[in-house]
Design a protein around this nucleic acid. Structure first.
Lengths: 155, 155
DNA sequence: GCTGAAACGAGCAATGT
DNA sequence: ACATTGCTCGTTTCAGC
């Protein structure tokens, strides 16, 4: 779907991206517009799927999710068939599934409580997915930065 | 900092994680509590840094950020010195910086408009960081899943 | 730490330009 | 596509338990 965003839309996205709980009234004040006009734009951005959701960032260690890992996965599935990727996406511990260029087929990002639960996930969820020929796991020792904010152009 | 979360806190986190814009009144209804009590808990979760922010998920292609890449970076810095990681974290296109186990030192996640702007970032921002000895770039062809939601325990 | 009340402000839809 | 209006409902503070 084609979307065209003007300067005001981009300003809204910039503000709302860094604080999803900003009130519509505050948004309107920042933009010097009537609240109703801003609300209309936000609703349209949601409809156009420019805004895909509002998420609360939670400290993983506070909820016992202390291990982060990236796993490269090779699959013997025919090129273009995304069946393996879809199966990987169903696993709750898997936050991201990317189809990548190069020898490996998929790169996934996984968050679990500890290394034991990572092993458990690999032995159960991954084992049941056909066509997976090999995996290469990279354990994260420390995360220096982790934000999902995107660079939004000025206009 | 040590934190202890009870069942109600975990319920709040589960609800608010998937919809950061949920009203305090709706939260209270779901939990069968008074709005003021829920507000008090949310404020404390923010203070305790269990909640670290509220983010709006934006479709990257709508704002011309069509390229996603992961880059493995080797550094000659002495072990435990995080200077390189801090420098990488300053680059706006870099969404994530992880210190990883194994031969490579860092894994970063980068989002740019296209391959040309990725090359430009590498030639400018990366070049200026001392101690980087090599980089290995993995281009994402297609993203099947990308969520930051964490698994929150039941109690 | 939760409830209930009360003041204040925001949400949201209708209407007009 | 934006501004104004007005009713409704949510937010937030405070007293009391």
């Amino acid at each position: 779907m084609e979307v065209s965003l003007d300067t005001i839309d981009l300003q809204i996205l910039t503000l709302i991206q860094n604080n999803a709980r900003i009130s519509n009234a505050d948004l309107a004040r920042e933009l010097s517009m009537a609240p109703s006009a801003v609300l209309e734009r936000v609703k349209k951005l949601e409809q156009k799927k420019v805004i895909t959701g509002y998420t609360t960032q939670i400290n993983p260690t506070a909820v016992q999710q202390k291990l982060l890992a990236f796993i490269f996965i090779r699959s013997s599935e025919s090129f273009g068939c995304g069946k393996t990727g879809e199966e990987l996406a169903k696993i709750p511990e898997v936050q991201e599934v990317h189809n990548i260029a190069g020898e490996d087929c998929y790169l996934i990002k996984v968050r679990t409580a500890d290394s034991a639960s990572l092993m458990h996930m690999m032995r159960t969820s991954l084992r049941n997915i056909p066509n997976i020929t090999s995996t290469k796991t990279t354990i994260v020792l420390e995360t220096v930065k982790e934000q999902q904010q995107i660079i939004i152009p000025k206009n």
